[in-house]
Nucleic acid binder design. Structure first.
Lengths: 334, 334
DNA sequence: GCTGAGTTTGCAATCGGTTGCACTCTTGTG
DNA sequence: CACAAGAGTGCAACCGATTGCAAACTCAGC
């Protein structure tokens, strides 16, 4: 039912090839013809059939986006960024959610790969080898993960942790606990590195209470161990864990920030709404999605390996101080 | 680079047409040949090219999903449901977020429509006429919206409101405020109808404080008006608004549920995490996404108008009682 | 042994675009 | 004025599948 290139050609009195050129290579056709073709296309509401074009060009005009779990508010933000930027470039986005399942992730990636020009993998849980393998056969951009030779946009974890520690140290904290995220999480591993570096520089003690699910429940589970460390402040892998901590601490009657200061990471909307409002390192999530699209599109246009390797984005976080952090309790008091 | 149907044909010693049939119409080809073809396809890792198939069949194997705002936790849940179910049927999902902009919505829908077999529109902000028009030229399933002659999956708003009111009445509340959502929201309009009906049945007074943005800020903005009504309980259009109410009420030193009980709607994860934990009507959001996919696929398989009109799903919500509701304050007390 | 029905398979057209090549028609140059 | 270069356009092949139609083959029945 929709108009084809032949309909336009007939109406404009030219051949289909001229229509094709008038629309996609404007400078090789006579301005007068071009205008005539454009008018005909307009009148018929002609839009090239993507499948047909894709068949010959090998390009689908689609990109795939894979995230571990949409229920974690971190990811919808990234998705929004990808969405918005892709639309600007007239590229459609296939979305897939792996439910934090590394096996499902691999299958999904392979299935998606065949239907798109490139993939954006956000916080993938797969191993480096698997990712490198995928990147070899498909155009891939990683978000929040770094693998040798694969374009990526990451967050400056070290810088973020440095800000958090500096803030806590300024408030007088000298013993700080760390609640880690999933073992397979690249960013968890890198945050702890930044944290230790910052702690060393400031001469404060860091206590690692282990790895937890990056969820509210994970935070609830971690809370008692945090308290047992005797730390006066805690940094959590993400805001969801931090909010879980807040809840359990409240239940136990431990005052935040009176007895214990809590810092999250991510800067999800919910952090503002918790009680007390959560001090956090806000990551430019949406921006990350936007840049990932730009990177991917750049790679598609110029698949030169050297360019690809240089294609990197590193985004800086920003410490947002709210009510969950305060001066360290006087050690003499109890 | 990937194997084509011709490669498989050559390896199996048959013609491409036989390969096509062996793979998609198994019973019209000789079992022996079929096995040979299957083996060859397997060996080559052959997967039919979707663009090529789409060109001839007119089917893309893709569906589109349009939501107003991924930042509202309601929608990621629906998206997850759609996702999961679509994958089961080997259908890919295009996602678009309109940023709550009705104009953008129209454009997006039209753009998406050409690349997919059908669309799922979740809580669309467009007018009935626009939606009916879209439904006439594309296969559409609505979620959380009802338009004459268009398949839809909705929530039982009346029933949900009835449960909420019954709960509040049992707690002794006799004057209940309602904080509405966006004017263009179909569900807001229908929730208020259910609310009034339930209030009448129970002989309690309902006070409408007006329409607000379906956000935390919207709830903060509504709080003072709620207090001014003198109501002892308030029902909010959604959980986000309810959580905003909680925050502002806390700031003003108004106790929840001591002075005022608060009920939300949606049952987002965040509701459990608020302080006090929010009593809410939990809607089966993910289920709605799953059913929407089933409905859409059914419509695609059988585009008979009579079937289409009968294609409806209505999901029931469930009252989750938490700490934000309690017995009405003694009127004599102040 | 021949005919006809029923199976199984291949040929070739087709979907809707894009693009290499060749052809026509200007226009500029010697 | 002839000729070459260049611009503009059309022809036809092609991308990778599906499918109507016809050919080839099998097999039963007479």
């Amino acid at each position: 039912m929709p108009a084809t290139i032949r309909d336009v050609a007939r109406l404009a009195g030219v051949s289909p090839s001229t229509v094709s050129r008038a629309l996609s290579l404007p400078d090789v056709v006579n301005p007068a013809t071009r205008a005539r073709v454009r008018a005909a296309a307009e009148q018929l509401g002609y839009e090239p059939n993507r499948a047909a074009r894709g068949l010959i060009t090998g390009r689908t005009g689609n990109i795939g986006l894979v995230v571990p779990d949409l229920a974690n508010p971190f990811f919808p933000s990234v998705v929004k960024g990808v969405q918005a930027r892709a639309r600007l470039h007239d590229v459609a986005v296939f979305l897939a959610d792996t439910d934090e399942d590394a096996a499902a992730e691999a299958g999904l990636v392979r299935a998606l790969a065949k239907q798109v020009d490139g993939l954006i993998l956000c916080s993938p849980r797969a191993t480096e080898e698997e990712l490198a393998a995928v990147a070899r056969e498909t155009n891939v951009v990683l978000v929040n993960r770094l693998v040798e030779g694969v374009p990526a946009v990451t967050f400056d974890n070290e810088g973020g942790m440095r800000q958090a520690i500096a803030h806590l140290v300024a408030l007088g904290h000298r013993r700080i606990a760390w609640v880690g995220g999933p073992k397979a999480s690249w960013s968890s591993a890198h945050r702890i590195i930044g944290l230790y570096a910052a702690a060393r520089d400031h001469g404060v003690k860091l206590v690692d209470v282990g790895d937890f699910a990056p969820t509210y429940e994970g935070g609830m589970a971690a809370a008692d161990q945090v308290v047992a460390t005797g730390a006066t402040a805690v940094v959590a892998y993400n805001d969801l864990i931090a909010i879980g901590l807040l809840a359990r601490l409240h239940t136990r009657g431990i005052s935040v920030p009176g007895d214990l200061s809590v810092v999250g990471i991510d800067g999800i909307a919910m952090a503002r709404m918790s009680r007390p409002a959560l001090t956090t390192v806000r990551l430019p999530k949406q921006k990350a999605g936007e840049i990932a699209v730009e990177l991917l599109l750049a790679v598609l246009d110029d698949p030169d390996p050297d360019t690809i390797i240089a294609t990197r984005g590193k985004l800086h976080g920003e410490l947002i101080v709210r009510d969950s952090t305060g001066v360290a309790p006087d050690p003499a008091r109890p």
